[in-house]
Every structure is written in structure tokens, then in C-alpha cells.
Write a protein that binds this DNA or RNA. Structure first.
Length: 482
RNA sequence: GCCUCAGUAGCUCAGUCGGUUAGAGCGGCGGACUGUUAAUCCGUAGGUCCAAGGUUCAAGUCCUUGCUGAGGCGCCA
């Protein structure tokens, strides 16, 4: 293969008069003379100038939207106003034709729904190439952030035998012949016959295993795929998504909140610092899109302004009890505008969270100390507070505008007896969690952690309105093409 | 899982009260064009009206069921 130069490198530091070979996909061919070429290395195109009479007629005819070409020529300052440099092509080779009579994409605005059905081509569009570059950037920044702070990347299992995680419906993993299931004497399916000799599922969370890591390595994080078989049909849910779960020994709920806030800001700052052109392209696209919306449906600020705002301001921190008080004093509450009741002991609904984040504080909010009854068994019980009608646990949720809960976490119950009591209360068989309990019995430590929805964070940073458009191959109920 | 809306040309949509040969813009194709920037100009082709059943003299239009998609809610990250 001829050695090619990536367009990002050329645009960054062009060496005028040098001869380069570039390869990529044609975004536009204008006036029989100008090719806008993109190779995915940057959102920006490189202009190739050809002399149609100096090239084979057949080659010129095949230069068209999304055809793949290689072009060789001298770099020169551009005579046109739209770009600084261009390649004066001496030769052009067609690497892959693109027959536009049958190719589904078109050089025009397409809906996200349509492009979703063409997941094999959508990364070639401006929007999706920017989204996927940013997705990469966020993933990389996650590892960099934790590595730089002395965390160890722990690989939690994808296949789990635990039924006790309680984070939702699970996908079963089995090699049993579904047409001829082995049965026990009592007629139940005999999971002892299955591959692992027990019933197994895809993981819904790596947290319990991350706790094992934290109680030995001090600070760990997991970052991997997570599976929920919930029949959730919303722009914020996927059946297969990625989650980051840091877990730290010797952290309490406040340390946990500090880390969560700093982590969120770091990821946003990293993308702004290193992928500004991509964010700017998405910002412009959103601004264009919003022009056609009525004023009340528009975002309060542009994408970049919003990202800067989140980075530059402290997150609001309140207790669940405060949140209920604020909501009960709110206008929508007094006017009966909320669909769901606001009452201490009941979980906050999306409409309540949205009021707190988007109306009342107008910035990210961390709510902590939720009622014990509505939270998971592993969260650390707080002492009874005089101003709280019931017992709470040291849980915390980080709420973002537009996407809602981006992080959920807690200080974990490290007291063996308290945990044992809680497990009994919620009715999980003790033997399911024998190793989890032993972590408390033998050299236990106070510890805390949280889970961040990776796609939700990418969604926030890119401004994409549907989570299916920030993952290359979305898996949702009734949909697993590609 | 519940509720709402939608499905008509490659894409985005219009299609009146059920009535003749189903339209537009964009895109494609053919042509023109050597400084364009979503290039522009001229010409042209293109339809299983989501599927099945039903009502009717007559269905893109009304009814039933199903499928698919989107949005809202719940569950959550």
C-alpha cells in the first residue's frame, strides 16, 4: 500500500510544496474541480483540486459522494476562501466506487432514525464521526484519569453466577438445549447440567466484585459492558451499555461525591481541550436544529456553553430530605403540576429531578441520604437524624440536565452485622452473598464507590438527544441488527 | 410493561368530505460548468400508499388485528 498522510496531520502542520498522498471518502465534488475529502482523522475535510482534462474520463466520472479515493499531489495555499490549504492533484485513484443509484446515504440532512437503520454507514456522516471520536476520547480519558490518580483497572466478570445484585432483569447465559431442557425430579430445570454447573447471567454491575478489589488494592475501577434485560423504551436506556465503577477503600460518602464531581468535570474538560473541533461541529449542528424549534423547546444555552458551565461551577449538593422540602415549596407542586406525589419516603420521579436540576438550581445536583426503604441492601445505614422522618442510607445520585441520573453510588455497609440484618430484611438468601459477607468479617474497611453510565456521559458531552446515537451498535428491546 | 403519535418515491413530507391518471422539495440519473464551499443551471426517471383481513358501487383515506419506528411514563446508569 502506498504510504498515506492523514488529513489531521496535514491540516495541523501543512508543509507547503511537499507531495502527499491522501486517502479517504468524498464528501462533495463541486464544479468538476473540487473534492472535499474526509478520512475520519478529523472532522475537517481536505480540499483536493483536480484538472478533469488531465485525468482519465472514467476516473472523474467515479468521483462522487462517499466514493473512496486516493489522491497524490502538492500541498498549496488555497486560492478559495473556505480553507487554508489544498492538494493540487497530480493523480487520483478510485479505491472503492460508490453507486449512488443504490447507496442509501445522500449528501443532505438525514434523520437520526433513518441513519440508525444504516448503522454500517452512519459513521461516515459528520455528526456520527464526531460522536464516535468523542466517545473514544471519553473512554481514553477515563483510563487516564484513574491511572493518574493511583487507581487500578479491575476486570469484573461479564458472566456472573450471582442473582443478588438486584439491579434489574438479567439476560440468561446457557448452553442447554432449549428444546430439551434437563429436569430435576421435582420438574424444575436442572441447572447443574448447564455449562457452569449453575444458573448464570450477564452482569448487571461489577460493583460487588469491585469491592473485592478495593479491599485489597485500595482504589480500583471497572469499565466494561453491562446488560439489563429491562423492557425500557426511552432515549436514555440501552440493553447493553458501558459502565464505569470506581470503588475506594477509606472513602466515605463525601469523599465519594468529591470524586464523582471531579471525575465528571475532568471528562468534559478533556474533550473540550482535545476534541474541540468535534464539539464545535456538534454545537453548530444543534444550534441549526434548534432554529426550527419553538422558543420554549430550545436549550437554555449552546452545547459548548453548557459544558463550560458545568466545568466552571460547583455541583449543588443537597440531601434527599432537602430535595423533598424544596419540591414541596415549589410552584409546580403548589399548582398540582406534578404527576407523582412528593412525600418523604417516596422516590424522586424524573419530573422532580428535572425541576431541581433544570429549574431550581440550573446546574448539576448531587442528592444524598435517601430513605433506606427505597435503596439497595449494600448501602451504609445512616444514624437517625432529628429532622428526618425515617432512616436513610448514604446513597448519592448525580443528576445532569437533559439526561437525568448520570451517576448513582453510595458508601457501602462495611459493618458485618448491619449488612447481615439488611440482607435478611430484603429477603436475599445469605449463602448467595457468602463471599460478600466475608469481606466484612475479615479485615473489612469503610469504603464507597459509584457507577457512571458511560453512554449517558457521552450523550451529555455530544448533546445527542437519543442514547442510541452515541453507541456504534445499539441494543434495545426488539432491536439487535448489526 | 403502560400511554400517545407515525408508517405514501431513495430521503423528508403533503394528499381536502371515501370519488378521475397519487404530488412537492431534496437526492439520483443525463447534460453544461476550471476557484467551488450543502456550488449553480437545464432536462429526466422514479410508487407493493407497512402487512393481513373487513366495510363500501368505490379505500392512501374508514374499521379490526399485527409488525416496525419515535416520543412520554415506569425501571435505572
Amino acid at each position: 500500500m502506498k504510504k498515506r498522510t492523514e488529513i489531521s496531520a496535514i491540516l495541523q502542520s501543512p508543509e507547503m510544496d511537499s507531495t502527499v498522498t491522501v486517502m479517504g471518502w468524498v464528501r462533495a465534488f463541486r464544479n468538476n474541480r473540487f473534492i472535499a475529502l474526509n478520512d475520519g482523522s478529523t472532522p475537517n475535510n481536505l480540499q483536493i483540486v483536480i484538472d478533469a482534462e488531465q485525468l482519465p474520463e472514467d476516473t472523474v466520472r467515479k468521483i462522487g459522494f462517499h466514493a473512496c479515493i486516493s489522491a497524490t499531489g502538492k500541498l498549496a495555499p488555497s486560492l478559495g476562501g473556505g480553507q487554508a490549504v489544498e492538494v493540487l492533484a497530480e493523480s487520483v485513484e478510485i479505491l472503492g466506487e460508490c453507486n449512488l443509484e443504490t447507496y442509501p446515504l445522500q449528501p443532505k440532512r438525514q434523520t437520526m432514525e433513518f441513519l440508525r437503520s444504516k448503522a454500517h454507514f452512519r459513521p461516515r456522516t459528520n455528526t456520527f464521526s464526531s460522536v464516535f471520536r468523542i466517545r473514544h476520547a471519553v473512554a481514553f480519558a477515563i483510563h487516564k484519569y484513574y491511572n493518574d490518580r493511583g487507581f487500578y483497572y479491575l476486570h469484573s466478570p461479564i458472566i456472573t453466577g450471582s442473582d443478588a445484585e438486584g439491579a434489574g432483569e438479567m439476560f440468561r447465559v446457557t448452553t442447554l438445549d432449549l428444546e430439551h431442557l434437563p429436569r430435576t425430579e421435582s420438574g424444575d430445570i436442572d441447572w447443574k447440567e448447564d455449562f457452569f454447573g449453575r444458573s448464570t447471567n450477564l452482569t448487571v454491575s461489577g460493583q460487588l466484585q469491585a469491592e473485592i478489589g478495593a479491599l485489597a488494592l485500595g482504589k480500583v475501577y471497572t469499565f466494561g459492558p453491562t446488560f439489563r434485560a429491562e423492557n425500557s423504551n426511552t432515549p436514555r436506556h440501552l440493553a447493553e451499555f458501558w459502565m464505569i465503577e470506581p470503588e475506594m477503600a477509606f472513602y466515605d460518602i463525601y469523599d465519594n461525591m468529591d470524586l464523582a464531581e471531579d471525575f465528571c468535570k475532568y471528562l468534559i474538560r478533556y474533550v473540550l481541550d482535545n476534541y474541540y473541533d468535534d464539539v464545535a461541529a456538534l454545537d453548530a449542528r444543534l444550534a441549526e436544529e434548534e432554529k426550527s424549534l419553538p422558543a420554549d423547546k430550545r436549550r437554555p444555552m449552546g452545547l459548548i456553553d453548557q459544558l463550560r458551565f458545568v466545568v466552571d461551577n460547583d455541583f449543588e449538593r443537597i440531601t434527599y430530605t432537602d430535595a423533598v422540602r424544596i419540591l414541596q415549596n415549589s410552584n409546580p407542586y403548589k399548582k398540582g403540576k406534578f404527576e407523582f406525589p412528593v412525600e418523604w419516603g417516596k422516590d424522586l420521579q424524573a419530573e422532580h429531578e428535572r425541576y431541581l436540576v433544570e429549574k431550581h438550581f440550573q446546574k448539576p445536583v448531587i442528592v444524598r441520604n435517601y430513605p433506606k426503604a427505597i435503596k439497595a441492601f449494600y448501602m451504609r445505614a445512616n444514624d437517625q437524624q432529628p429532622d428526618e422522618p425515617g432512616l436513610t442510607v448514604a446513597a448519592m445520585d448525580v443528576l445532569f440536565p437533559g439526561i437525568g441520573e448520570v451517576i448513582g453510588g453510595s458508601q457501602r455497609e462495611e459493618r458485618h452485622d448491619a449488612l447481615l440484618g439488611r440482607i435478611a430484611e430484603v429477603g436475599i438468601p445469605e449463602e448467595e452473598l457468602w463471599w460478600y459477607l466475608e469481606l466484612r468479617k475479615f479485615g473489612g474497611a469503610p469504603h464507597a464507590g459509584f457507577g457512571m453510565g458511560f453512554e449517558r456521559m457521552v450523550q451529555f458531552i455530544t448533546g445527542m438527544s437519543n442514547i442510541r446515537d452515541v453507541i456504534p451498535f445499539p441494543r434495545t428491546p426488539k432491536s439487535a441488527e448489526f
